[in-house]
């Protein structure tokens, strides 16, 4: 198929790429720009693992043709950090235990970022609605909700009840 030259702005950099017109933004990010942080979990818009920011809004890059993304600011998970130090939001996800296998995490973190950029202290319901298009099989979502609350400076409710300290005495007795 005829290839076309397009210009994309990704993570603040101008990129010239030659692509087939039917290629999705997800394919071009992953295959042409080696930005594999965006994942392909379904390719039909139903899992959210391919989420990127387009002018600050969370979009599914598998549903967008790369050509349509021209003229917009695209941010992928790689664009949140300098590659060495996590951004505060990424760090909170790690510290709260909101990342397990991590396949959903890039999309989830970017969806959370879009939410936090538009709402300063989202309620639990708003958070759950915002991430309801991002599937996660590992976390049960509770710790993700808590991470987003913590990231917006809200107190995180205590939902975990620690084991009773050291019990070796009991075991020894």
């Amino acid at each position: 198929m005829e290839q076309v030259l397009i210009k994309l702005t990704v993570n603040g950099r101008e990129e010239d790429v030659r692509v087939s017109p039917h290629k999705t933004l997800l394919e071009v990010l992953r295959d042409d720009l080696s930005l594999t942080g965006a994942k392909n979990g379904c390719e039909d818009g139903s899992c959210g693992t391919c989420t990127v920011l387009l002018d600050g809004a969370a979009v599914r890059s598998c549903l967008l043709l790369a050509m349509e993304a021209q003229g917009h600011e695209i941010v992928t998970i790689e664009g949140l950090s300098d590659g060495q130090n996590m951004s505060p939001l990424q760090e909170i996800f790690v510290n709260q235990g909101a990342v397990q296998c991590g396949f959903c995490s890039p999309g989830m973190i970017l969806t959370a970022k879009a939410l936090l950029d538009s709402a300063s202290s989202p309620t639990e319901t708003e958070i759950r609605e915002a991430i309801s298009g991002n599937l996660c099989r590992c976390t049960g979502y509770t710790k993700i909700v808590e991470a987003v609350m913590a990231a917006s400076g809200q107190p995180v409710p205590v939902r975990t009840h620690p084991y009773e300290g050291d019990v070796s005495e009991r075991a020894a007795s």
């Binding site: 996590m86 990424q90 790690v94 995490s105």
Partner: peptide, 13 residues
């Protein structure tokens, strides 16, 4: 989980 949060973790695909 840090490489996974950074998006640098490489999965097979």
């Amino acid at each position: 989980t840090i490489p996974r949060a950074l998006g640098e973790a490489k999965f097979s695909a």
